[in-house]
Amino acid sequence: MATQAGAGLSAVDREHRFFFITACLMALVLVAGFSTNIIFGRSSFGAPLIFHVHAFVFFGWVVLYLMQTGLVATGSVRLHRRLGWLAVGWIPAMVVLGCAMTIFSVRQTGGPFFFDKNEFLLGNSLGIASFAGLAVAAIAMRRRTDWHRRLMSGAMVTLTGPGFGRLLPMPLMIPWSWWSAAVLAPALFLLAGIVADLRRAGRVHPAWWWGLAVLAGSQLVADAIAYSPMGHALTERVTAGAPGAARPMRAFLP
């Protein structure tokens, strides 16, 4: 029966359903990851204010993205377009808070012990920049809906790294912890889009390749900077005079 129901959907309807399902899965990764932190006592509601503001803004984006994909899937395109303008103000707020939270974490603790301190600082910063770049490109191409939905999905993919980082056994993945959580695991959603396009249309939309290029390319650039003398000096300057300065630059097992 499920197969017959799926076969009765048009190609456009199947595509809309795909984006809504993947949006739900990405949200699940993030919710599960951060819930695990609370369950195991690695985080609490007594954290500094910046944690709560950061969580509100970033999970607000997740809710907005879920709503937007759901509205398109149910045919409420007009409301989708109206709500879409919220992203214009939301994206800059996420960039500012994402960078501020990264600097705060590096200064306070040096970042998670299973990431190199310099890679965490630069990778997180360029990661949020890659999110903003893909999201802005998606908004600019909103009239070309095939590009718009794939670029926006790619932007959302870049945000799933923190969720995967809390679900995967990061200490066991040293020295590849950062790439495992920030690139390889999130890329599975982009690969799912590629496979879905091949099954649905027999070809891959180029927006997926752009998403993969930005996801991996931003981290390659981040590493090139992070492991250069400039990257080391920048990390030391950011942590100077703070508790994070005492943490080794390299990932380590406590």
Rank of each mutant, 00 (worst) to 15 (best):
Ala93Met: 10
Thr102Asp: 05
Ala93Arg: 07
Ala132Asp: 07
Leu168Ile: 07
Ala140Gly: 09
His16Tyr: 13
Gly46Tyr: 07
Arg203Gln: 10
Leu234Cys: 09
Ala138Glu: 10
Phe164Leu: 04
Leu172Phe: 11
Arg166Asp: 01
Leu49Gly: 10
Gly241Met: 10
Thr160Leu: 03
Trp210Asn: 00
Arg17Leu: 15
Leu172Thr: 13
Val88Ser: 08
Ala187Glu: 08
Trp209Ile: 15
Leu151Phe: 03
Gly163Lys: 04
Ile39Met: 12
Phe164Pro: 01
Ala245Ser: 15
Ile39Tyr: 08
Arg78Gln: 15
Glu119Leu: 14
Cys99Ser: 14
Ala87Cys: 08
Pro248Trp: 09
Asn118Trp: 09
Phe189Pro: 01
Glu15Pro: 06
Trp85Thr: 06
Gly163Pro: 05
Leu190Lys: 04
Pro169Ser: 13
Ala246Cys: 11
Leu121Ala: 08
Ala87Ile: 04
Val204Arg: 01
Phe113Met: 11
Val157Cys: 05
Pro48Asp: 06
Leu121Asn: 03
Met230Pro: 00
Asn37Trp: 12
Met141Leu: 14
Phe164Asp: 03
Met152Pro: 03
Arg17Trp: 11
Thr74Arg: 14
Pro206Ile: 12
Ala242Lys: 00
Leu198Asn: 05
Gly231Pro: 02
Arg143Ile: 02
Thr160Gly: 01
Phe164Gln: 04
Gln4Ile: 06
Ala132Cys: 13
Gly241Tyr: 07
Arg142Lys: 10
Thr22Lys: 02
Ile39Phe: 11
Leu121Glu: 00
Phe51Arg: 05
Trp61Leu: 14
Asn37His: 13
Ser105Thr: 14
Ala2Gln: 15
Gln108Leu: 11
Ala27Ile: 01
Val183Asn: 06
Ala137Val: 07
Val136Ala: 11
Arg14Leu: 12
Ala226Lys: 02
His205Arg: 05
Val57Glu: 02
Trp208Ser: 02
Gly6Gln: 15
Phe20Thr: 08
Met170Arg: 03
Leu121His: 01
Val221Ala: 14
Met170Trp: 04
Ala242Leu: 07
Leu122Val: 11
Leu167Met: 09
Trp85Pro: 01
Phe45Ala: 10
Ser228Gln: 09
